[in-house]
Design a protein around this nucleic acid. Structure first.
Lengths: 130, 130
DNA sequence: GCCATTGCTTGATGTTCTCAAGCATCGATG
DNA sequence: CATCGATGCTTGAGAACATCAAGCAATGGC
């Protein structure tokens, strides 16, 4: 199935940087900007207690940083470090299959695809380009 | 990101039937017909030893059956049981978000979307309709 | 100040995932 | 045939992931 191809590819690319799929997805979400633990959990549709462990491991490797949010001291803002940014860029660059797949379409077709996906699946949020 | 929405939805639907995402994906693949352990592992981009455990648990719940392949006694063919078919149908029916998203497109747009996805991501296989 | 709510963490339990190792079968080659 | 490399699956160990219940700290309304 089409979408599985995308995720399989992402998993392989993430693994090449010694990251699990969940860690890769988390970095990918953080590319858009800092987010609280609960916001990450919501986006990745998992329990908040789950994010604690994932962020723990990413932080231990210096890819991510927990910062307090002054306006609400309960909240931890998770931020990509420079190294984290580098790693997620490398991963995205390595997604050969997806890139090759998208290259099979011309520019106008790619635009159409993105527009349709956006309308179908993203009610609230800006579209992310695979 | 658009594709994450699809999988989040699938995860929730699978959980409502007390299945994990991996178990749900496995049943979903088997909808197309029986497959060997290694074929499943390839499709789901994971290790063969991984499938053993997943199929073990699905089999214990009667959703799936291992059958020997007479032409090659090393191979185990994994087959959906009637109950397994019922469960995966329920799950697919529960994917409200995806359904609602696709309903936001008219028929011609859906066709375009499927065609583009197919051309971009599925070189070898028939297209699967989400 | 009280108290329900929210945000995050901890601990327990089961599942997933990967790797290395193992056993059985197959197919080809001598 | 007999052997031997390759293939299909399983097992076991160790890490990560997932979910739930419980807990603590901070918040905001009363």
């Amino acid at each position: 199935m089409s979408l599985a191809a995308y995720y399989g590819d992402f998993t392989v690319a993430a693994a090449s940087e010694n990251l699990t799929a969940s860690q890769g997805k988390t970095l990918n979400v953080l590319r858009r900007g800092p987010a609280s633990m609960s916001a990450l959990a919501t986006t990745l549709t998992c329990d908040a207690s789950n994010m604690t462990g994932i962020i723990d491991r990413l932080e231990k490797r210096g890819l991510v940083r927990r910062e307090p949010r002054p306006s609400d001291r309960r909240v931890k803002n998770v931020v990509l470090t420079a190294e984290g940014e580098r790693v997620i860029d490398v991963i995205r660059g390595k997604m050969h299959t997806t890139q090759a797949g998208l290259n099979r379409l011309d520019e106008q077709e790619r635009d159409t695809l993105y527009t349709l996906l956006e309308r179908a699946f993203v009610p609230q949020d800006a579209a992310a380009r695979p």
